[in-house]
């Protein structure tokens, strides 16, 4: 089967049955999720339709600056989402996070689309934007987990960190365990995904390619590149962002600035 089967609007509406099941479950079990499911459904449909039209336009326009502009907006949105998930409001971390994500994800997307896939020009939107989207989406979740873990552990273990500082530790030594734990917590989902891929689940991108008629042997190559890219970009961005944020948790005199809980 090489031809993709188009999903008609009535067929799309049929898929709403799944949402209906979720709504009924929430109602019967009194989960109180009906409002969230409704908003989620509306947002999924509207956001994806908007994205579909936007991508059609961008793919047609074939403009370098438009492609890069979309990339910047995607990174900015990711930082905004991370900000919503992280409770800490005292230590400013948004600007370094944005700049690190922007530079490291750009290099990753560039490396993959230009050198690994070998597409010309390197910014060909059909390759560059989905690649960047996967990197940003995956690393965004990892960073949100890592940053939140770092701040919460700094708050919880404040006395232990200060005890080490008082015994002559520098700020890196005093927070080494917390730092390691936070980076690991962010990276574990990507590493687990490498363990389960092909056995437990077929990733979204590969499923999409197969459904669109791509030979599975080609689809797996793309997926392998994507899996490696996601682990690598998550590791690079986590280490850089977390090192900057950790420094910001301490003042000039290496005094801990994170307030107790």
């Amino acid at each position: 089967m090489n031809q993709i089967i188009e999903i008609s609007i009535p067929q799309l509406l049929l898929a709403l049955l799944f949402i209906l099941i979720a709504q009924i479950t929430s109602l019967v079990q009194r989960l109180g999720l009906n409002k969230d499911i409704t908003i989620g459904t509306i947002r999924t449909v509207s956001q994806l339709f908007l994205m579909g039209y936007a991508l059609t336009f961008i793919f047609g326009a074939q403009n370098l600056w438009l492609t890069l502009g979309i990339f910047v907006v995607m990174v900015f949105s990711a930082v905004f989402i991370i900000r919503g998930r992280v409770k800490e409001k005292q230590i400013p971390y948004e600007v370094p996070t944005f700049l690190t994500m922007l530079s490291s994800y750009f290099l990753t997307a560039l490396f993959v689309s230009w050198l690994v896939i070998g597409v010309h020009p390197w910014w060909e939107p059909r390759y560059f934007i989905p690649t960047a989207g996967m990197v940003i989406g995956n690393s965004m979740s990892a960073l949100a987990i890592s940053i939140e873990r770092l701040f919460s552990q700094m708050r919880q273990q404040r006395d232990v960190v200060e005890m080490k500082l008082c015994l002559g530790a520098n700020y890196r030594e005093a927070s080494a365990e917390i730092f390691k734990g936070a980076v690991k917590a962010g990276m574990i989902p990507s590493i687990n995904a490498m363990m389960g891929v092909g056995l437990v689940f077929i990733p979204g991108m590969m499923s999409g390619q197969i459904l669109a008629g791509t030979d599975p042997l080609i689809a797996i190559r793309y997926q392998i590149v994507v899996m490696f890219m996601l682990v690598g970009s998550t590791a690079i961005s986590s280490i850089i962002v977390m090192r900057i944020i950790r420094r910001r948790c301490f003042g000039q005199s290496e005094e801990l600035l994170v307030s107790p809980e």
């Binding site: 005890m163 500082l165 008082c166 530790a169 700020y171």
Partner: peptide
């Protein structure tokens, strides 16, 4: 700071 705190060592209440 590490040098200062190993010369003047603060022992916490808890």
């Amino acid at each position: 700071p590490p040098e200062l705190r190993s010369k003047i060592t603060y022992v916490q209440q808890i």
